[in-house]
Computed example of a mutant assay.
Amino acid sequence: MAKTTIDTAALHSALDAARQERGLSWRALAGEIGVSPSLLSRLGNGLKPDTDGFATIVAWLKLPAEQFFDRDGGDNGADTREPDLMAQLAPLLRARKDLSETDIKYLEQVIGLAVGHARAQG
């Protein structure tokens, strides 16, 4: 049976990128997120966060928790295909407050055409 765990390296990397972008120390980042500095230190050392800590971090990052899942073991018949790109992008585009419905539809069309072109080339 496949086991799903948290990819601590990916989570720590996303936090580090956000930290650097804001020019914060790890301690200041922890304060902004609302978690203890030791939680971020443990992540940096490859240790798993507690459930509440993980939920708080991914909510603060505004990224889907699944982005930080690492599925291990055999597929046991599980579907290993990548999710459809447009299915992933649509909620992200619609969550943007700075885009109108017209903007969203236009971006969906442009991205759809680009993906179709890339698939035809590859």
Rank of each mutant, 00 (worst) to 15 (best):
M1R: 05
A2C: 08
K3I: 13
K3W: 10
T4N: 05
T5Y: 12
T5G: 05
T5I: 11
D7R: 00
T8H: 09
A9Y: 08
A10W: 04
H12A: 00
H12T: 01
H12E: 02
S13M: 03
A14E: 03
A14Q: 07
A14G: 05
A14M: 02
L15S: 00
L15M: 02
D16M: 01
D16H: 07
D16G: 04
A17E: 06
A17I: 04
A18C: 15
R19H: 07
S25R: 10
S25A: 11
W26D: 09
A28F: 01
A30Y: 06
G31Q: 06
E32V: 11
I33F: 15
I33S: 13
I33P: 04
G34A: 13
V35C: 01
V35Y: 00
P37Y: 11
S41N: 04
G44T: 01
N45K: 15
N45I: 13
N45T: 12
G46V: 00
L47C: 10
K48F: 15
K48V: 15
D50E: 11
D50P: 12
T51K: 09
T51F: 15
D52K: 15
G53F: 06
G53A: 12
I57S: 08
A59F: 11
A59L: 14
L61V: 05
L61R: 00
L63Q: 05
P64Q: 10
P64C: 07
E66Y: 12
Q67M: 14
F68S: 02
F69P: 13
D70V: 06
R71S: 15
D72A: 07
G73F: 00
G74C: 09
D75K: 01
N76P: 14
G77S: 05
A78D: 14
A78L: 14
A78M: 14
T80R: 15
R81I: 00
R81M: 00
R81V: 00
D84F: 09
D84R: 08
L85I: 09
L85P: 03
L85R: 02
M86T: 14
M86L: 15
A87F: 11
A87T: 13
Q88M: 04
A90R: 01
P91C: 02
L93K: 10
L93E: 03
R96G: 11
L99W: 02
S100I: 04
E101M: 15
E101R: 13
T102P: 02
D103E: 09
I104V: 01
K105L: 11
K105I: 06
E108G: 06
Q109N: 08
I111D: 03
L113W: 12
A114I: 10
G116C: 08
G116S: 10
G116P: 03
A118Y: 06
A118T: 08
Q121K: 11
G122K: 13
